[in-house]
C-alpha cells in the first residue's frame, strides 16, 4: 500500500513528506519503545507510535523506517517535521488510537479482516448479578424521584460506568414520573448482568391507546396542573428512547403498561 492509502484509511494529516506519498510500504510495526523499534529489521516499513518526540523520528530513521504515524492526535515539534522532511521520511498524524490504526492498516495489508464473531448467546446461562424490586404509587408526587435516586446509588456503588448510570437514572426518572402521573401503581425490577442493565416498569393503570403516538416528542396527556410543576412535557417515552439502548413498550387499555429498557455495559 502507498502512504496515500495509509493517509486516507487512517484519516491522517500529513506533517512531513508530502511529495513522498506515492511510495510503497509493506510492513507495519506498532511500538512506543525505541529499543524495540530498532530491533525491527524489515525494509519498506512504517512505524505506528504514540511517542511524540523528535527522538522517535530519529530512531525510526536509524531503523530505516520509511515513515511514522503518530496516533491519538499527538503533536510534534517543528524540528521533528524538519528532520523528517530533510531525511526523506513521511510523517502522519491520526486521531485513531493504536488498536483502530492497527486494525485499519491490517485490513489494507491482508485484503480483509475477520469480522467479529457474534457474541456467544448467553441467554441460557446468563449470570444475574443483581435483581431488585421497587414500588411506585400513583399520584405520590412527594416521593417523585426516590426510585431513580435509589437505582442510581445502587449502580454507582457497584461501580458501573458513570455515563451509563446517568442514562439509567434519567430513564428511570422519566418512567417513575409516568407512573406517578398516569397510573395507580407499578413494580420496578432492576436486573444487572455482566452484559446489560435492565429496567422493567410494570404498571396498573389506564394504559396507552396508541404507543407509537406516545413515542413522538411533544405528545402528552398530562393535565395543566402537572405541566405547571414541570412534568409531563411529553418527553417521557422519547427521552427514554434516547437514553436506553433498547426500549420496548407494550400496553393494554384499562390494564396497564409495561416498559422494558436495556442499557448495554
Amino acid at each position: 500500500m502507498t502512504f496515500e492509502t495509509i493517509k486516507s484509511v487512517l484519516g491522517a494529516n500529513v506533517l512531513a513528506g508530502t511529495d513522498l506519498l506515492q511510495s510503497e510500504v509493506s510492513h507495519v510495526y506498532a511500538s512506543d519503545l525505541m529499543s524495540d523499534v530498532l530491533a525491527f529489521g524489515k525494509s519498506d516499513s512504517i512505524l505506528l507510535t504514540g511517542l511524540a518526540s523528535q527522538q522517535s523520528i530519529i530512531s525510526a530513521h536509524m531503523a530505516e523506517f520509511k515513515g511514522v504515524v503518530l496516533i491519538r492526535g499527538k503533536r510534534m515539534k517543528d524540528e521533528a517535521k524538519t528532520f523528517a522532511d530533510t531525511h526523506g521520511m513521511v510523517l502522519l498524524s491520526t486521531a485513531m488510537d493504536m488498536f483502530e490504526a492497527c486494525l485499519a492498516l491490517g485490513a489494507q495489508l491482508n485484503g480483509s479482516v475477520t469480522a467479529p464473531r457474534p457474541a456467544p448467546d448467553r441467554a441460557t446461562h446468563e449470570t444475574i448479578i443483581l435483581n431488585s424490586r421497587f414500588n411506585i404509587e400513583g399520584s405520590d408526587f412527594a416521593s417523585a424521584g426516590l426510585v431513580s435516586t435509589e437505582v442510581k446509588s445502587v449502580l454507582k456503588k457497584i461501580g458501573i460506568d458513570s455515563s451509563i448510570v446517568r442514562r439509567v437514572a434519567i430513564s428511570m426518572y422519566e418512567g417513575e414520573m409516568n407512573v406517578i402521573m398516569h397510573a395507580k401503581r407499578a413494580d420496578v425490577d432492576l436486573v444487572l448482568t455482566p452484559q446489560y442493565i435492565e429496567l422493567l416498569i410494570d404498571d396498573e393503570g389506564k394504559g396507552i391507546p396508541d404507543v407509537n403516538l406516545a413515542m413522538q416528542e411533544g405528545f402528552t396527556t398530562s393535565t395543566e396542573e402537572q405541566r405547571e410543576m414541570g412534568f409531563g412535557s411529553g418527553m417521557g417515552l422519547p427521552n427514554m428512547n434516547r437514553n436506553a439502548d433498547e426500549l420496548t413498550v407494550t400496553s393494554e387499555v384499562d390494564r396497564g403498561t409495561v416498559v422494558r429498557m436495556r442499557f448495554h455495559i
Binding site: 488498536f99 483502530e100 464473531r117
Partner: peptide, 17 residues
Amino acid sequence: SQTFELVGRLYSLGLAT
C-alpha cells in the same frame, strides 16, 4: 505475536477499543 498482528485476532473475537 507482535502487537500489530494480535489486533486482528482480538477483533475477530469481538474485542475492540
